[in-house]
Design a binder for these strands. Sequence first.
RNA 1: GCGAAAGUGGCGGAAUUGGUAGACGCACUGGAUUUAGGUUCCAGCGCCUUGCGGCGUGCGAGUUCGAGUCUCGCCUUUCGCACCA
Length: 866
Amino acid sequence: MQPHYLPAEIEQQARKYWEESRAFKAVETPGKPKYYCLSMFPYPSGKLHMGHVRNYTIGDVLARFHRMQGYNVLQPMGWDAFGLPAENAAMQNNVPPAAWTYQNIDYMRGQLKSLGLAIDWDRELATCKPDYYKWEQWLFTKLFEKGMVYKKTAPVNWDPVDQTVLANEQVIDGRGWRSGALVEKRDIPMYFMRITAYADELLRELDNLPGWPEQVKTMQRNWIGKSEGVEIHFPYAGSAEVLKVFTTRPDTLMGVTYVAVAAEHPLALDSAEGNPRLAAFIEECKKGGVAEADLATQEKKGMATGHFVLHPITGEKVPVWVANYVLMGYGEGAVMAVPAHDERDFEFAKKFGLPIRQAIEAGELKEARNAIASGNYSEKGLAQLEKVLSDFKFTSDRWQVWYGEKNGVCVHSGKYDGLNYEQARDAIAADLKTKGLGDKQVHYRLRDWGISRQRYWGCPIPIIHCKTCGDVPVPEQDLPVVLPEDVKIDGTGSPLKKMPEWYRTACPDCGGEATRETDTMDTFVESSWYYARYASHDCATAMLDQRARYWLPVDQYIGGIEHAILHLLYARFFHKLMRDVGLFGGEAISPTLSQEERGQSSSSSGFNEPFANLLTQGMVLKDGAKMSKSKGNTVDPQALIERYGADTARLFMMFAAPPEQSLEWSDAGVEGAFRFLKRLWKAVADHLEKGAVAAFRGGHLSGELKALRFQLHQTIQKVTDDYGRRHTFNTAIAAVMELMNALGKLDDASPAARGVAQEVLEAAVLLLSPIVPHICHALWGELNPGTSLLDAGWPKADPAALVQDEIELVVQVNGKLRGSISAPKDAGRVAIEKIALNNDQVQKHIGGQTVKKVVVVPGRLVNIVI
RNA sequence: GCGAAAGUGGCGGAAUUGGUAGACGCACUGGAUUUAGGUUCCAGCGCCUUGCGGCGUGCGAGUUCGAGUCUCGCCUUUCGCACCA
């Protein structure tokens, strides 16, 4: 055996073996449990970054671990190939986006291959290829026919100098990134997907995803934002029309002192006619971009419309204001304002001198009054409590807390006085319903998904505009609508608009003159269904075929936490769309893993959810900041692989932090990983130098060898759990390192010792192989010539090796560690207590004081309380 | 502004169900090997203290025989906010 670890050589040999034996080709095998392991596909930006290396290593570790456990594993790879950066690069380098993208894909594919990933490359796909996006267009036309796609206007960022629509990312401090011009909101017609129709299912099904992180499910729940409230109609003074608002706090209705509408609200626009100051203000509100984070943090501005509505209960006149903090896209674009109990309304009312009327008081006050009535509380105490609470009023969080938590009671609210939240809500909703001025309503924060993009490098929206027939979907036989690839990008809008030879066409319905839609789809659309297409990657007759029913759902999905909401919600939505279009046929035909087999799994039946288990990976940082070109703190994976090999890169990434946490880059840590692999290689080489030997199969062992076998089989158990259930690869590696350290201390050349050493080394190589597959492939071949590691299977712990006669217990006195004792493994509480009390160290610390209590935690510790 | 997380030695992290805080690795220090550097190997390594011992998981309270872990309140950092992907 070669005495030195030569990564370049052994990694090339290992990859050659895997390729030639077609080791990772995934074949549908009914009856065999399948494991579909998917990492989020990369955007082909040019070259891999460390985040990719981390993501794909995590996926590969899980794929290889499950393969060794006997699963039929599918791990595919592809390219999220449409997107804005290609257009920017095209302008910079004067190369068409398509050419730039394909070039990047070729380079990055080579990089991925050098990582030694267990991928079935036959299933590779790129979303910019017509045979992929054809089916996206097909689904779009089906959804258009079902009414799940519709058209409406919506605001976008408009750069008035470049005369172009800007992405939020291209708006810096309210200005266009290239022109520097102040950005404006502009309404344009767009196609929308009716994701709100699935809001309730998307919310409910989260409960059937035990394999998803709670954090992600919570974020999605909040994003969907189901709230039960009341729609309230404020009649216009002297008109039959009403102004609709939605509120989750109908109990505060009697505290309303004004109503605020968005600048784009019809009432605002109406009022602006003949009111130049208001018109100017509305114009002012159009300035700036559409990003919500900016809208929510901007200074609160407003202006009275001069119009009034009537309070639906009291009939009192309530002024209507235009406010920039009210968003047209939410609910009705109008809110009832209760300055006494809402921080934003309060701030606004103070700024513009609007009245503040209390309608709720703290639950504590009601309790105090009840206590006075029953003689348990003094009038003086109440007065003090009132003063304390009034001091908090409007100045501290105290006031907001009991508003926010809905635990106050109504005051100054006429007939509703004394009612709590639920009582007031029900009473007010009932009264409004009687008057025909409102009712209870369920409202979602989630908005429909605008998918039109005024860009070139994307999937063409398959719609033909005909003067007589309107918007006509492209018929199936005419799909795909192919995006021309040889174009020039000049930054003045989509080149498609300048290609009459492309957009001029005939109407599929009437045959008359018509034009193609030149907008393309949001790239989130492509990434919402690629996971399903991998199963049917080469199907030319349909979007999906029977194979999708074998592989889906994805058993393990891995990707960055930044996708927790948008991508993952859109993909869940698309899964349900595909299901409802009938693409999955009936029930699953694949033998879905049992819960025990999988650890965590989806309890949802059939094809309701795309991803049974989700692992959200943390970021790769250097010097405490995200690695990025702009910060200039990137480390090139290529250089790392060339210097140390892929195994060192993989080992460092898996060892430095658990996958869900952020990972701090460390050059010294990489050295450490490399050193460990050298030690591992040397350990096997030194062992084999003394001659080949079979692994221990039973027989008498010294205490030292027994202890080593105990540690070995404990390590097998721990590592199996760390990979399969906990996904903490860092602790799995640490456990194998400890095992190797223990083996290194063994100074015994007896045949029994050599057998145990062989057993330890074989197991260590198998346990590490999902993380460092190349070196383990080579070492296994040395330990067991003529066999392949991939055929060896996952090691199993030997129960006989795990039997122990004595166990160690820690003894505390008053919670402080004072010593340790050894007790027979089946000793009872009383026996353990006796051993602990007889311990010299313990006696010293008790020092004659009375023992009040002894707590015995079996297998762990004894705590003596004095 | 809203939503979600995170905070433990000089550093990355471990402590899985409330039960020995600091596993494993890095850095550092001392020693061995080496012409030297590097490599490799051995030992030490939270802070304070001569010692006994005390203190210690962002800060402040609380629950408990026992809190890094649970509760409440703060501080700081990170992610997302619908046209970056």
